[in-house]
Amino acid sequence: MDKPIHRTAIAILIVILLGGCTWKQQQHSAQPEPAKPVLSGEYFMTHHLMTNQGMIQTSLAEQPTYLSESLGLWMDYLVRKKDQTSFDQQVDVLRTQFLLEHDLLSWQIESHQKSQVNALVDDLRVVTALQKADQLWQKSVYQTTAKKIAKALKDKNMFKGMLTDYYDASTKQTSHTITLSYLDPKAIKELVSLHLFTEQMMNNQLAILKNAPRQKGFFPKSYDIVKKVYSFDQEINLIDQLYTALYAERAQVDTSVIMKWLKTNFQKEGKLYGRYKLSTLQPAVTYESPSVYALVILYALKQGEDDFAKDVYHRMKELQIQDPLKPYYGGYMNEKDTHSFDNLLPLIAERELLNEKVIQ
């Protein structure tokens, strides 16, 4: 057989098999959704970073580490895809592996040891995914689990009435700072819908976003609840800034300066870098990040900038291994390794573009 034809035949077979895998999962769903093709990034996740128990490894290292961040992002993706079978598997992973005795999530599991510290951002993301699942599939375990975690956040993860970065169960101490990129209005509203927060409590949290000072349009990194002081980093970490901008938009805070800066830089350079110097707004690093591009896409969609979102998507996909015959097909690789975050966020962005019919 001619070699190019042979390669094409194998590639077509892989695509057919991927579609078959989706059908097999969906047919057992309580309320089956029409089968959706498995995205190449999803194939990479399930074949290279997921264990037989459904745990997501952070990298390809021999000694795996598992993060509540990965769990929450994967649950977010599965809700957007409406894949109940896979979502239920992750609910089991959540309850059996990540939940600590006091109902917060261990932020990291390493060498089979659970950290006794949680991360607010991850717990809120899981609560939001569970609440979305409850709306979709009305299964009691979703809301009961969400309420357990949310109540623990209220009881353990607050200082002077404010949500903070973490709670350390080993020392019974709560952080006194809040990172602005953790304050998702959508997630905090879920605490109200679960009857754990009042509207006033929610408004108190969002006031930190709404009252934040800006430097050249960019947000501070964190807020110290004791000192009542905002702190800026000398470098703009675009992951933090984009999450904060996305959440600020949800809180009806004007972020148009950031969007204009992103569009101008992308159109000029054809790319965006991971970090920029706050003083000069010049790149502080030479690398691109698929996670940055994914967040730009989600942020652009929020602002109705569909064309910009599509342009950034095409650049993001150039960083992905798209040849089905390559060993790490579908992955966003950094030479011979990767990070779950840099694969999960692009997957979420791609699914959202499909859901919004910006791409097909």
Rank of each mutant, 00 (worst) to 15 (best):
K3P: 03
I12R: 14
I12S: 08
L13W: 13
L13P: 04
I14C: 13
V15M: 11
L17I: 13
L18Y: 14
G19N: 13
G20V: 11
Q26T: 03
Q31M: 08
A35R: 10
H47K: 15
G54C: 03
M55N: 06
Q57T: 10
A61K: 14
A61G: 08
Q63T: 15
L67Q: 05
S68G: 08
E69I: 06
G72P: 13
W74M: 14
D83N: 14
D88V: 03
V91D: 07
H102T: 13
L105H: 04
L105K: 09
N118F: 00
L120N: 00
L124D: 00
V127E: 02
K147A: 00
I149Y: 01
A150F: 06
L153S: 00
D155G: 11
N157I: 00
K160P: 06
S175I: 05
T177S: 10
Y182S: 13
L183Y: 04
E190A: 04
L191K: 06
L191C: 05
V192T: 08
Q200V: 08
M201D: 14
M202E: 07
Q205R: 01
A207W: 07
V229Q: 13
V229N: 10
S231W: 10
F232V: 07
D233Q: 15
E235L: 06
L238D: 07
D240T: 07
D240F: 04
D240Y: 05
L246H: 00
A251W: 01
Q252K: 11
Q252N: 12
M259F: 11
K260L: 13
E269T: 13
G270T: 12
A284E: 02
S289M: 06
A294H: 00
V296M: 04
V296F: 03
Y299N: 08
Y299T: 10
G304N: 04
D306F: 04
F308L: 11
D311P: 01
R315A: 15
D323F: 09
Y329C: 12
D337C: 02
N343T: 10
N343D: 05
L344G: 05
L347P: 01
I348P: 00
E350N: 15
E350Q: 15
V358D: 07
